[in-house]
Design a protein around this nucleic acid. Structure first.
Lengths: 353, 353
DNA sequence: TTGTAGGCGTTATCAA
DNA sequence: TTGATAACGCCTACAA
C-alpha cells in the first residue's frame, strides 16, 4: 500500500494493473453495468493496491456537475448563529454525497461578490446565502441558472427564501414576561427600518412589533424604555455595548424596568454585564430574555431566550438546494417559514412587588 | 450582458465572438505572452459581453493543481476558537488566490477520515488540521505528498506543527493572581494525560503544570482545589458543567478558594454561573481567570483571560501551506511556537482580606 | 461482458 | 504576434 502514490494514481493505472480497460474500472467503481465477479475482484485489488482515489476534478468536468454546494456566511464571529446554520448545511450535504464550500464574508458586500464569483468559477451546483448582504450578488448567483437559497434575511424576492416567524417568537417571550407580572418591560435591539432593504428588515420589525403590540394591548407601552442601536454590527464591543449602555441609562435615571427583552443573546449579554455591575440580581431584581439561543447557556444566570432553528434552517436549505439541482429528486421551489420556541432558563422570574 | 449564460460560456465561445483562437483568449486572461493591443481589446469586449467566468475545474485538471487548501476543523460550536482559526486561514488564502475548503468533523475521527478523503479527491494543494483527531488521518494526508500543517494540538510529529506556549500563558495568569495576593487558587480543567496521544496532551500539561509550579513555589499547592474533568467535550452541558460543579463543591464544603484559574473561557463561564447562584460577587469575593479569549468579553463580569492567537495561527498555517506547495515561494517547513498574552478585564481583583 | 474513443474546458507547446 | 493541437482524468455511448 504505497500511500505516496495516492494522488498520482489514475484510472488508467488501475486498469493496467488489473489488466482491464478503464471503462471496466469505472463500471466497478460505480457499480454500473455488467461486470464479471472475477473481473470485479481484480479491479478492487488494483484499487486497494494503488490506493486509488477518484479525481473529483476530472469527474466534475466530465459530468458538468461538481457535487458541491456553495455556502456564503454573513459572519462567523461573534454571533454563533451562522456557524450553526453552516453545520446544518454541511450535515445534510455530506449525507447526500455533496461537499460544501463555505465562504465567510464578514458583512462585506465586496467579499460576498468575490465569494459568488469563486463559487461560479467552481461551478457549484447551488448557492446558499446565510444571510445575503447585497441583492445584486443574489441576482448574479441566480443568473447562473442554479438553485439559490436565501436564509433568514432575504435581500431579493427571487429564488427560495427560508425565513423565521420572529413575530411569534417575540410574542411568546413577551407573553412569558407578562404572565410573570411584568409591565415595565424594556426593549433593546436594532431599529426597524434601519436596514436599507425591505426584505431583510422583517426580522427587526417582527421582534420589535410583537414587543410593542403586546404592551400596547396592555396600555403600558412606554417609548422611554425602548433602546435602539446597532444590534448586529460585527464589532464585539458595539454589539455588547448597546444592551450595556441602555441598562446603564435607565438605572442612572432611577427608572429601571422590571424586565428587559433583548433582541439577541449578544445584547442580553451586555444587559447582564450592566446589571451585574450595578449589583442587581437577575432574575430577582430584573428579568432578562434574549433571542437566538446562542450564548444563552453560557451566561450567568443561564438565559431564558427564544430558540432560533439555526441547524434546521441550514439542513432545509441544503435539502432544497439538492432537490432543485437539475436531475435532483423533486424540484420543490417552495419558500418556507420556520418556527421558534421559547427556552425557559434561569433569567426570568415573577415581578418582585 | 446576459447573465443567464454565465456558467455555460466557455473560452471557445469567447474566442469565436472575438474572432481569435482560444490560445489568444488565454493569453489575454493570464496577461501572458505577446498580445496586440487591438486583439486584447476585442477579447476583453467578448469576455464582458458574454459574462465569461473561467472554469476553475477545467483549469485545475489541466494544471494538476487546484489552488484550494483543505482545512479540517475539530469543531465549530460551542468553542469559537476553531472558527477564529478558520478565519485566519481564509483571510490569508483568499488574499493569495487560494480557495479554502472547510470541513467540520465535530470531534469524530471517522468524519475526519472522510474529510481527508474528500480533500484528496479534490486534489487540494495542502491540508490543515485544526486540530487533528487521529494520527492515521494525518498520515493519510501526508501520504498524498502535499504540505500538511497541524495546528495547536498535533497528533503526529510529521509535517509542520504550529503550537502555542501554554505554559507561559498559564504562568502569566498565575503571576497575575498571585500578585493580587491570592494563595488559595483553584484549578478547573481537563486532566493532563487523559489524551491518548502524547503530542496533543502538551496543552493540558502546560496549563496545569504552570499552575502547579507557581503554587508549589509558594508552598501553597493544595490538591483539594484541583478539579479535573472533561473540559473539551463537545456537549455544551458537560463543558459548562465541570466549572459549575467544581465551584459548587468547594462552596458547599465551605472551603472556597479566593481565586479560580479555569483552563478555558467555557469552563470559566460555568464558574461564573455557580458563583452567581451563590450570590458571590466576582471579583470582590472571588477572582476568576479564563483561557482562550473567546467567550470572555461577553461574560459578566468581563473575564480576565489568556489570549490565544487563533487568527494568527490560522494565517500562519495558510502561509506555511502556500509556501510549501511545490512551486511556492520559499519552502520553509519549520514548525513554530506561538505566544499568548494576558488580557486584563474585570473578573480579577486583590484578595479580599 | 468488455474495450475503444470522443469530449468536458483549459493550458501550454510548437509552429507559423 | 497568433493559431492549431495535444494532453489533464474521467465518463459513457457505441462497438465488439
Amino acid at each position: 500500500l504505497d500511500l505516496s502514490l495516492t494522488t498520482k494514481t489514475n484510472i488508467k493505472d488501475v486498469a493496467e494493473r488489473a489488466g482491464v480497460a478503464t471503462a471496466t474500472v469505472a463500471r466497478v467503481l460505480h457499480n454500473n453495468g455488467y461486470v464479471a465477479e472475477t473481473t470485479r475482484a481484480k479491479v478492487m485489488e488494483a484499487v486497494n493496491a494503488t490506493g486509488y482515489q477518484i479525481n473529483a476534478i476530472a469527474r466534475s468536468l466530465k459530468r458538468s456537475r461538481s457535487n458541491v454546494i456553495g455556502h456564503l456566511l454573513q459572519s462567523t464571529v461573534p454571533n454563533p448563529f451562522f456557524v450553526k446554520v453552516a453545520r446544518g448545511v454541511e450535515d445534510y450535504a455530506q449525507k447526500h454525497g455533496y461537499t460544501t464550500l463555505t465562504y465567510n464574508v464578514q458583512g462585506d458586500a465586496e467579499a460576498e461578490r468575490k465569494g459568488v464569483e469563486t463559487f461560479l468559477g467552481w461551478r457549484v451546483d447551488a448557492i446558499i446565502f446565510t444571510t445575503p448582504i447585497s441583492a445584486e450578488n443574489v441576482d448574479r448567483a441566480m443568473g447562473a441558472g442554479i438553485p439559490v437559497i436565501q436564509v433568514e434575511r432575504p435581500r431579493s424576492d427571487k429564488g427560495i427564501l427560508l425565513t423565521v416567524d420572529n413575530y411569534a417568537g417575540a410574542k411568546d417571550a413577551m407573553a412569558h414576561l407578562i404572565s410573570l407580572g411584568h409591565r415595565r418591560i424594556a426593549y433593546v435591539g436594532q431599529r426597524p427600518g434601519s436596514q436599507e432593504n425591505r426584505f431583510a428588515d422583517y426580522v427587526e420589525e417582527e421582534r420589535f412589533g410583537a414587543y410593542r403590540d403586546a404592551l400596547k394591548a396592555l396600555g403600558t407601552f412606554d417609548e422611554s424604555l425602548v433602546a435602539f442601536g446597532a444590534a448586529y454590527t460585527l464589532s464585539d464591543m458595539d454589539a455588547h455595548g448597546l444592551g450595556y449602555k441602555a441598562i446603564n441609562d435607565w438605572l442612572d435615571k432611577g427608572e429601571r424596568p422590571t424586565a428587559v427583552f433583548a433582541s439577541s443573546d449578544l445584547l442580553a449579554a451586555g444587559v447582564l454585564q450592566a446589571t451585574n455591575e450595578h449589583g442587581l440580581q437577575v432574575p430577582h431584581d430584573i428579568s432578562v430574555v434574549g433571542f437566538d439561543d446562542t450564548l444563552a447557556p453560557f451566561l450567568a444566570p443561564e438565559l431564558t431566550t427564544v430558540y432560533m432553528p439555526a441547524h434546521e434552517l441550514g439542513a432545509a436549505a441544503a435539502k432544497l438546494a439538492l432537490d432543485n439541482i437539475a436531475g435532483g429528486a423533486g424540484a420543490t421551489a417552495v419558500s418556507e417559514r420556520f418556527k421558534t420556541h421559547l427556552v425557559l432558563r434561569a433569567s426570568t422570574a415573577s415581578k418582585n412587588s
